[in-house]
Amino acid sequence: MADCAIRNRIRELRFDHDEMTQQALADRIGVTRQTVNAIELGKYSPSLEVAFRIAAVFRVPLGEVFQYDGKDRKS
């Protein structure tokens, strides 16, 4: 597995939303609980659509859920 350059705050956001379970989040964004877990652990980078769905569930901008840590490839 390649190092994931995308960090996320999903665990923290779930905690802030009444301890929302991974299953509850998974049901709302249309993926399996295992996929939510893989995203949280940085083992899978979701598609842009799923990323937007996650942000919509928590009612925050995309940048508050996901942060890019990688270097600019052009520099």
Binding site: G30, V31, T32, Q34, T35, A38, Y44, P46, S47, V50
Partner: peptide, 11 residues
């Protein structure tokens, strides 16, 4: 439930 569900994007 899981068995009936369609494959998600990661799967």
């Amino acid at each position: 439930g899981e068995a009936r569900a369609a494959r998600d994007e990661r799967e």
